[in-house]
Simulated assay, not measured.
Amino acid sequence: MRLRQPLAVTTYPSAERSEQPPVLLVHGFCSSARRAWLETGMVRALLDAGRTVLAPDLRGHGASPAPTSAEEVDAIASAQDLLAVVDAYDADRFDVVAYSLGARLVWELAELAPERIGRVLLGGLSPTEPFAAVDVAELRRAVHDEAAPSADPLIGMIAGMIRAEGARADGLVTCVEGLRSTPFAPKPWAGGTPPWFVVGVDDAMTHGTGELLPLAPGSQRVAMAGDHHGVLVNPFFRELAVRVLDH
């Protein structure tokens, strides 16, 4: 049996000893921990609040290894990757800030560790599976043949995002294949603390996220200025994260 390589993780320890659990940051598709969290100021905001931060790159992203099969990057395997990150840190309990694909995976992570997951902020979460309608063979062709774009606008958009990642492109197509095989069909939220949902007022991907609220009684939904990328760089997103995790 081939052993899975661990994810690449950057740990940012708090300046002073803290009794609060570490914060797991989970980025979205075609992103990385650096782009989503360090460059946007989220890491600095949490460190200033006295928190220790665990910032992994999802498999196929950033400095983490590329997947060799779709099974390595389906939703369940990806959630297990995240659980391994907090296990390696030896954290009995952890809080979470996650965005887009990261938020979808954290819903799965809560199933794996319901008694360990604490306060949670989920941004940019789509209530349905964005990759469900993607023809993976067509996507792979579109990624490698820019001169012959796909007639499907969704595939064309995703292919453009993936091509921009250069050498990581093949692994990212495999990520789509794995996620497509385990589409998001949310069960009731398994974590003990209801999550906060953050959506952008101009983010079409989050339309319908309110339908998830009954699955997480006591949860809160906050709308803020921005499209799918704009929310990540909105200072209010960072401020809200600090407040929610310190509540």
Score class of each variant (00 low, 15 high):
Arg2Met: 14
Arg4Asp: 04
Arg4Trp: 09
Gln5Asn: 13
Ala8Pro: 01
Val9Arg: 04
Thr10Phe: 01
Thr10Trp: 00
Ser18Val: 01
Glu19Asp: 14
Gln20Cys: 12
Pro22Cys: 05
Leu24Pro: 00
Leu24Lys: 04
Val26Lys: 02
His27Met: 14
His27Cys: 14
Arg35Ile: 00
Trp37Val: 06
Trp37Gly: 03
Gly41Val: 09
Arg44Gly: 10
Arg44Gln: 15
Ala45Ile: 04
Leu47Lys: 15
Leu47His: 14
Gly50Lys: 08
Thr52Ser: 15
Leu54Pro: 03
Leu54Val: 04
Ala55Gly: 03
Gly60Met: 05
Gly62Lys: 03
Ser64Val: 07
Ala66Gly: 12
Ala66Trp: 09
Thr68Ala: 10
Asp74Asn: 15
Ala75Tyr: 09
Ala77Leu: 03
Ser78Val: 02
Ala79Val: 08
Gln80Met: 10
Gln80His: 07
Leu82His: 02
Val85Arg: 01
Ala88Thr: 14
Tyr89Leu: 13
Ala91Asp: 04
Arg93Gly: 04
Phe94Gly: 08
Asp95Phe: 09
Val96Tyr: 07
Val97Asn: 00
Ala98Leu: 10
Arg104Pro: 06
Trp107Glu: 06
Leu112Lys: 11
Leu112Val: 03
Ala113Tyr: 07
Ala113Trp: 04
Pro114Tyr: 09
Ile117Trp: 02
Ile117Gly: 02
Gly123Glu: 07
Leu125Ala: 06
Leu125Asp: 04
Phe131Pro: 00
Ala132Lys: 11
Ala133Glu: 11
Asp135Arg: 09
Ala137Gly: 07
Glu138Gly: 10
Leu139Phe: 00
Leu139Glu: 03
Asp145Arg: 14
Ala147Val: 11
Ala148Cys: 12
Pro153Phe: 09
Ile155Glu: 04
Gly156Ala: 12
Met157Phe: 15
Met157Gln: 15
Gly160Cys: 06
Met161Val: 10
Ile162Gly: 00
Arg163Gly: 08
Leu179Cys: 09
Ser181Trp: 11
Pro183Ala: 06
Phe184Ser: 05
Phe184His: 07
Ala185Leu: 13
Lys187Asp: 07
Gly192Ser: 07
Pro194Phe: 04
Asp202Cys: 13
Met205Ala: 11
Thr209Gln: 04
Glu211Gln: 15
Leu215His: 14
Ser219Glu: 05
Arg221Gln: 13
Met224Ala: 04
Met224Gly: 06
Asp227Arg: 12
Val233Arg: 08
Asn234Tyr: 07
Phe236Gln: 10
Phe237Asp: 02
Arg238Trp: 00
Leu240Thr: 01
Ala241Gly: 07
Val244His: 06
